[in-house]
Design a protein around this nucleic acid. Structure first.
Lengths: 235, 235
DNA sequence: CAGTCATGTAACTATATAGTTATTTACGGG
DNA sequence: CCCGTAAATAACTATATAGTTACATGACTG
């Protein structure tokens, strides 16, 4: 009923407007009303934030639609539903960090420089992409039940392990690193030190009464990670 | 509600049980039907699990009531609401770990032994109390907004820092540790390595195709933490 | 230049969810 | 032994929330 009214009044106003542009404007790059890519990207970005901040269960579909400034129906149109959207966010997050990492090219540096580069990159990436850590956090809270669905996740990570492995081998030959280190353990240690500080800094700041979000504290912790990793690798 | 059936069978079984202790035992700890302490403890335990597993936003009050096998009304009676219950869970979690820690008495050991003891304790505590890490995770996702409300949290932690500080000083004097280490950084490193492995093992297992929940992997990581910390402390 | 379909909107539905109200029941002091 | 009260229950309410339906429209293609 109310729709009939709306429809009518709308088609009327359109008739009126139809005359307008013909008179007033040229075909300039007006922001396109209908843009599938823009819309779906906006949804994904908004969903990433919402899921990272509130977790899977705490995230609200309506809140995502509002953040993206799109109609909720579009979210279902492009992604199917909350679950599928979450999976898209999850995969997108891993693809993003692994792509950035792949641009590092550690093999053209000395082992020590390469390792430092990897640590610094990881630390900076975590720092600049808080939503990545948030997504990991909520995904792990659910024991990775959604990540397991994703087939192409493993192949995304083998290059990383190979890269670190090469770095370690070269470091042993050069006498910079001790032998027998597990590349996965090394990566996990780097990630652990970086991730824990950033994700837990809110409770840590409270319990130790020390503002860990200050730049000086953040910089100091970045240095600390390097020291710890190099101490561990020292022959 | 579907609980009607349960309730009926419950009051029956309690009637039966009520006779039992009278015959068998002194007027001690028979399972009282109306037991404020038991009920509120059951609620707190159930809430801890629910919040740890699903996060603050994902936790459901009805689910907590069901887990605790109590009527939802009791939850409001004892705790006031979801928020207040969550705060109780949060405080309880910190009190529990700090109390256990306080029983360590590190000062009667050699610095190296004391440090090893602290690392092993922390690792084991995290391992045995997964809900603690879950609570921290969801609390940090909310930037510690509830923890900040808790006044008595800081004083709970200063003894820990003092204890580590003493350990480090003695270690420097004994020539076991290098000087200039920050006790808070040391503790955070221990916690980081332990916490990250356990909370993130689900996604890590998936991306590295390696079952990190296996005992051998868990034990190996425990050893790894010790190695990393001692490498860092080495003069 | 008309028809078609991807893009978009508003309003709706069924269920879930936090919190309440009205009421009953067991415990223990007098 | 009985009565006031704390402990417990069931049934309810208002709102939030995931997901849908019905319809509109702009842009592109044949």
């Amino acid at each position: 009923m109310s729709e009939a009214k709306t429809a009518k009044s709308r088609s009327k106003s359109v008739d009126v407007e139809a005359a307008d542009p013909a008179v007033s404007s040229a075909p300039v790059e007006r922001p396109r009303l209908r843009d599938a890519e823009r819309t779906s990207k906006a949804i994904l970005a908004a969903a990433t934030k919402e899921f990272a901040e509130r977790g899977y269960g705490g995230a609200r579909v309506d809140a995502i639609a509002e953040r993206a400034k799109i109609n909720k129906r579009m979210l279902y149109h492009y992604f199917g539903g909350k679950d599928a959207l979450y999976v898209a966010v999850l995969e997108g997050s891993y693809v993003a960090i692994r792509s950035a990492e792949a641009r590092l090219d550690l093999s053209h540096r000395s082992p020590s420089e390469g390792m430092r580069e990897l640590v610094v990159f990881t630390w900076k990436y975590f720092l600049d992409h808080p939503e990545f850590l948030g997504i990991l956090s909520t995904e792990n809270m659910q024991k990775a039940r959604f990540l397991k669905r994703s087939a192409r996740i493993f192949e995304l990570h083998s290059p990383l392990v190979a890269e670190i492995s090469g770095l370690l081998d070269r470091g042993v030959v050069a006498g910079d690193f001790r032998s027998g280190c597990d590349p996965v353990k090394i990566y996990m240690s780097i990630a652990a030190l970086g991730s824990f500080f950033l994700t837990n800094r809110w409770t840590l700041s409270t319990i130790f009464q020390r503002n860990l979000s200050e730049k000086s504290e953040i910089d100091a912790w970045g240095e600390h990670i390097i020291e710890v990793i190099f101490a561990y690798l020292r022959p």
